[in-house]
Design a protein around this nucleic acid. Sequence first.
RNA 1: GUGGAUGUAGCUCAAUGGCAGAGCCCUGGACUGUGGCUCCAGUGGUUGCGGGUUCGAGCCCCGUCAUCCACCCCA
Length: 417
Amino acid sequence: MLANPPGIEDIFPDRIDRWNFVIGTARRAFAAHNFREIVIPVLEYTDVFVRGLGTDTDIVSKEMFTLEDRGGRSLTLRPEGTASVVRAYVANGEYNRLSSAKFFYCGPMFRAERPQKGRLRQFNQFGAEFFGSSDPYYDYESIAMMDMIAKGVGVADYSLLVNSIGCPSCRVNYVKELKNYYQGLTGQLCEDCVRRLQSNPLRLLDCKQEGCVALKAGAPLIQDHLDESCKTHHAAVKEYLSLNAIAFKEDPLLVRGLDYYTRTTFEFVTTRLGGQNAFAAGGRYDNLVEQFGGKPTPAVGFAAGIERMLLLIEGQEIGGAPLHAYIVHSGGGALAQAVRLASSLRAAGISCDLEPGSKGFKSQFRKADRERASFTLVIGEEESSSGTCTVKRMATGEQERISQEKCVEFLTETLHS
RNA sequence: GUGGAUGUAGCUCAAUGGCAGAGCCCUGGACUGUGGCUCCAGUGGUUGCGGGUUCGAGCCCCGUCAUCCACCCCA
């Protein structure tokens, strides 16, 4: 038997109802905020991610699926969506000349990590990106949209963490302070953090090693090193959240894994995903568009892990697309009539199913029950000779005989009432 | 990438180194044309894969693959 590669999974119908519920909820939230869909490529030149995310990030340094095309150019399966959206936005004059633009996307991402619960090599994300303003309102809007989606699908016990990591100029000062603080303490740091101190000091605050965690308590905080405009911006974002009853926790240690973030960063976290605690995250990235060769354009966005959200709503009852009718027949001429009836029901938008094989009524009814059909239509010998069918409402068990011609009309009315 | 645990029927799991089983599911019957409940019967297995030890391996050993957990990282 052929297997699928590790961390790459099939999604069967029993999960699809839930899946569509999550995406449907997201789409409604996006539409409510006037975000429109963009479909970006799954495969990009490797440089899109190297330049976009930064060479020091784990994603770029060790988690990308990279291959060469026939011309020897390096291609990479997208590990995230933002870099692609930015690249597309910069390339498309139709959109980047607008004063602002709102996009959302949805699809598979690829990272060559060791698979685990809530961590796949091919996983799906939806996300939104806003281009064109540094107004804190838009930071709020991104967060509010994701919050609406989390509440809409019924994720329980999550918290929203918010921080500001400032703009590059305030970060320069802060990083200097941070380095000063840690410089004298290298003996107490883990191996990774000693390296981070040189390559990406902000990540020191993300370390979970016991020794390093203890040192964080005395570390200087970015909040104390924000310049006036970043401070004002951050306060305004929090103000918007509070005014709109979106609960959040300020987390001064929240730094994101990608280099492109400026000012606002946020994460939606839960304790129910084991080692993986975030199911959605995002932030502002005011310099990325310029970095991709576009004109300076502030931007903010987020992405959410669909499989992780699915895990979080596992026990929840989701009403799947119901089967309207199941046709039970006695074979022969009755089957012919059943097929004809099915055809006209389907044409009228009524979903129905039947089995062509000659099975007992009992087993056909069992099937109807298992498929959760709302109605069962019986065409047996009596019905077929009189051109009628018996309509049984499965929930109550009551049934009545009507003519086959009236069937479509009858079901259309009953299903809509 | 590092460390640990686990792989037996479609699912959840049993089985001192000695006949591979149960419950659920599925199929059929009791009920010649009516689902869910009950009872009865039946189908279903290269014990993840490959080697080794042994008279004999699901069980012990080695390898491999996969899954899970933790680390790491992240959605």
